[in-house]
């Protein structure tokens, strides 16, 4: 390769490497803000501020979804395998919201350790299967495996 071209190639590589490093350091410095939600264990550890709008993500604990008799409130627990967190919500849940599936809750942590949600989003996983195939492998608890990986680390 011609020396002038080689030099330009090296300069371009340096440009790409340095700009990647700059962005890398910036995102590393902001790593706690890059996460979309807190895992329930962050609440147990007391890392989550009170009365501030935050997001929590986890798996809906099977059997924990309960509706109040005298109001629109629905209560459920989220878990990441280590800790559980109770959420109260009084609006319409998304169609894909279900026990043993992942959900993201936007709301405020209250004094009593319960999150009052003003929005609940359903997360779906990256698997796509026809209904017949899904029926034959029912009961696979993949939600917890996925949600406990690398979340809030």
């Amino acid at each position: 390769m011609h020396p002038a071209r080689r030099q330009r190639l090296i300069l371009i590589l340096i440009l790409v490497i340095l700009s990647s490093a700059a962005v890398g350091f910036a995102t590393y410095a902001m790593r706690s803000n890059m996460d979309y939600f807190y895992p329930p264990r962050a609440f147990a550890a007391g890392e989550v501020p009170l009365e501030k709008r935050i997001r929590v993500g986890g798996c809906v604990v099977p059997g924990s979804v309960a509706r109040a008799g005298d109001s629109l409130d629905v209560r459920f627990a989220l878990t990441d395998g280590e800790a559980q967190l109770t959420v109260v919500f009084d609006k319409i849940l998304p169609d894909l919201f279900a026990e043993n599936e992942a959900a993201v809750v936007i709301g405020k942590l209250q004094q009593n350790g319960v999150v009052r949600a003003d929005k609940v989003l359903a997360k779906h996983d990256e698997t796509y299967t026809p209904p017949e195939v899904a029926d034959s492998m029912k009961g696979s608890a993949v939600c917890l495996q996925q949600e406990s990986q690398g979340v809030g680390a």
Binding site: R31, M34, D35, Y36, F37, P39, G57, V104, L121, K123, H124, D125, E126, T127, Y128, T129, P130, V133, Q146, G150, V151, G152
Partner: peptide
């Protein structure tokens, strides 16, 4: 790398894809 609302990749280079 981070927790997100978007699910992880379905089509993977190194392992079988999680789509029927």
């Amino acid at each position: 790398w981070w927790s997100s609302l978007h699910q992880p990749a379905t089509l993977k280079l190194m392992e079988p894809s999680s789509i029927h």
